[in-house]
Design a protein around this nucleic acid. Sequence first.
DNA 1: GTTCAAGGCCAT
DNA 2: ATGGCCTTGAAC
Length: 583
Amino acid sequence: MLLDMENHSTLLSLNMSPFNANSGDSPAGTQSSSPMPQQYGSPPLSTPYSSCQQSMGMPHPQTMMMSHNIDTSYLFSSGNNSMSGIDMGANYQMSGPATSINTGDIPDTKDGIEELCPVCGDKVSGYHYGLLTCESCKGFFKRTVQNKKVYTCVAERSCHIDKTQRKRCPFCRFQKCLEVGMKLEAVRADRMRGGRNKFGPMYKRDRARKLQMMRQRQLAAQTLRGSLGDGAMYNSPPGTSPFANIHIKQEIQIPQVSSLTSSPDSSPSPIAVALGQVNSAIVQPASNNQQPALQIVGVQGAPTSMVMGPENKLWGQANSTTTSPHSLSPKAFQFDTLVPGSSVPPSSKVSPLIRDFVQAIDDREWQNSLYGLLQSQTYNQCEVDLFELMCKVLDQNLFSQVDWARNSIFFKDLKVDDQMKLLQHSWSDMLVLDHIHQRMHNNLPDETTLHNGQKFDLLSLGLLGVPSLADHFNDITAKLQELKFDVSDYICIKFLLLLNPDVRGITNRKHVQEGFEQVQQALLEYTMTCYPQIQEKFNKMQQLLPEIHSLAARGEDHLYHKHCSGSAPTQTLLMEMLHAKRK
DNA sequence: GTTCAAGGCCAT
DNA sequence: ATGGCCTTGAAC
C-alpha cells in the first residue's frame, strides 16, 4: 500500500526539482551548482520540525513539503479549519483601472497595474525571480540564495511578514518568498550580470494577460457606467465601487499543493493517514505551514467532519475573471427546503437513510475547495502546468472523498484495511460520479478562467484527464438525465460503488454486504416511490455503473501512464491509488 | 537601439 | 543586513 521507500527517497530530489538549477534548462544555461547548502538535500528525517530553533537556514525540504501535509491533515480538521494561519499577506491590488476609467485611456501594464509585493506588501518594482515583487524582497531573496544564508526563527516559524516587519524574521521572510513562488533557480550560480533567462517569455505572457484583464475590466466598467449613468460609480466611497478601486484580496484557504508531492520517509502513506490508521488519532491541521503539518495529537473520538470555518473567504467576489461558484446552500440538498417544481421529491417519501445521506452532502464545500485550490495554485503565478493542476485538484477531491467515506455509515465501522481496499477499488468511479453530479445538479461549468488568466478545463476532472472520453461522459450524463437522476440517486449510487462486497480481500465482507443491500433496497424503494413513471429506473441506473467504471478505468490508465512517464505529480494520494490497484 | 531582469554597489 | 539605485547584457 505504501509507496516504495525508494520512491520516498527519490521524492526529496524530485520535490526539489523546481528549485534545483542543475537541470538542463537552467536559466541562461549558466547554473553549474546548486545554490543550496548541503542540509537542503539531506534533511534529518527522523526528527522533522522538532524545534523551531533548529538551525536551518535554507528551507528544509520538509518545510517545502508542508503543503502536502497540511492538505492531508485538513481531512482531519474538526470544524476548526485553521488554514487561515497561512497568511499570505496577499493584497493583490489593481488600482490601475481606476485611473484608466477616469481618463478613458487604455493603460499599459507598467502604469496601469500597481500590485503589492506578495511577500511584504510593499510596492512592486518589477518581475524578480519568477514573479512581481518589491525591490527589497528581490534583494533579500538574492542575498539569501547567493550567500547560502542560514536563518533561524526564534518564534513559531509563522511570523507575520509585512513592509514594516519584514526585517524581523528573515527565516519566515524567506519561507514566504518560496511560498509565493519566488524561484531559486532564477538566482544565477555564476553571478553573471545582465541578459535574460528562461523566465522572460513567462513574464511577457503574464504582462499580456494582465493587460488583457485590465482591458476587460475597463470595458466592463464602461458598460456599467453606461447603464448606471456617468456619476454613479464615482460617487461611491473608495473601495465600494465595483471598478473604481478593484481589490482582489486573496486569502489562502486551501494550502498550496505544489509540494503535495512529498512526505518524509517515516511518514505513513497518504491514504493510511487520511483514513486515520495512525492510532485513530486526529491529525490537526497545522496552524501554519511552518509547523509539523501532520501533528498527531492524542484526541480520540473528536468529530472529524470537515466544516469550513467562517474565516474562510470564498472565491473573491471582485474577481471577475473566474467563474464564481454557484450559489449553493451549505447543505445543498435539504428535502425540507423543497421548492415547487424542483426535481427533489418531498421528504415524506424518502427513507431516513437516504435523507441522512443527502443531508450530509456539502456541495458548497466541494466547490469552495475546488475554486480555492485553483485560486491558491495560481496565486501570483504567471503560468501553471494545467495537467499538474488537474492532478492536484483530483488529489484534493480524492482526499475529500476519503474524508466523506470515513465518516459514512457502514464504511466507518470497517477496519482500515478493508476501508483501503474498498476505496482503492472505487475511487475513480466515485470521482467520475461526483463530477457528473456537480455538473448535473450544481451547474458546474466545463471551463473556468484561472486567476492568472489561463483557462482551466473543469470537465477534464470528470474525464480524469482524457479529453477523448468527453463523448462517453456526455452520453452517460444524457442517459442519467433521461432517468431524472437526482441527488438521492447520486448519493446512493456512490454508496453502492463504495460498498462493493465483491472487492477481493475484504475481511468483514458481511458488513459491507449488509450496507450494500440496505442502500440498494433504499434506492429501489425510492425510485419506485418517487419515480413510478420512469420504468425500471433502478435497473437502468445500475446498468450505467459499468459504463462509469469503464470510463474511470480508462482515465486511471491514462493517469498511471502519465505518472510513469514523469508527467504527473508524485507522492500524491491520487498516484498512490493508481499504484495500489496495480500491485 | 530599447527593454528589463539579472547582479553589484554602497549609504544606512 | 537592508534596500534603493546603478550597471549589465541577452532578447527583442
